[in-house]
Design a protein around this nucleic acid. Structure first.
Lengths: 108, 108
DNA sequence: TATTTATATAACTATACACTTATATAAAAG
DNA sequence: CTTTTATATAAGTGTATAGTTATATAAATA
């Protein structure tokens, strides 16, 4: 699953926002998200799996708890894809053409 | 459709990369994309519609041609969602412009 | 004017995925 | 030990969407 597909889901975006505040065990995430979105524990658990498997979260085991923490590699990948486009609305950047060209080369 | 869903599709991402280089009429986009992804003209046209309707592209009519240009509002929305997370992998950014410029140098 | 070119829309289909309920597994608590 | 709690996985289902072919519409061209 591509990083942008991972972020395409509102539940997953919400979980990332929660994890940006503090690490949380699965149960605490379920409490918030199942209330806000009306989905079940397995539903949330499946989203956590997607986040895990795509570099957006990692887990540490604490007894019966799984404590989730934000992992940035997925987000960084999004950010990198976005970088060459940022020139278009951030006038600070001087070398527009150069930057775009760099992004193109990298894609190969 | 949410901005992240728009970017979830590889064909649409590719089209945006093309438009970041130069404005292009529909036909030219079809030529590149249908070759690279093996999809039909209507397939590409439907992607263009999604980009149009979600603030990623706009069109100007030139006779029978529809010339597509990058529109940044969709991408800016993505960038804004990402912004608060950027702190996690970009150590201390106080002055945005300064930091971005510095990051750019470092990325080599 | 008739034909071709450029592009979009309509109607349909297949597939991915976001849910569900049921169940499994392991740790904690009683 | 037995039960409860915490979490994950399995299996099934409905729906959104990315593709298809067929067709519509307008402009260019012969």
């Amino acid at each position: 699953m591509h990083v942008f597909d991972v972020l395409g889901d509102p539940v997953r975006r919400r979980i990332l926002e929660l994890l940006s505040v503090e690490d949380m065990p699965s149960g605490a995430i379920v409490n918030v998200v199942s209330l806000e979105f009306g989905i079940s524990q397995p539903g949330v658990s499946q989203h956590l799996k997607v986040l895990r498997e795509n570099g957006f979260a990692n887990v540490t085991i604490d007894g019966a708890r799984r404590v989730y923490a934000l992992h940035t590699s997925g987000l960084e990948e999004v950010d990198m894809w976005l970088a060459p486009f940022r020139n278009f609305w951030t006038p600070k950047f001087e070398a527009l053409a150069t930057e775009v060209a760099r992004g193109k080369r990298k894609r190969r």
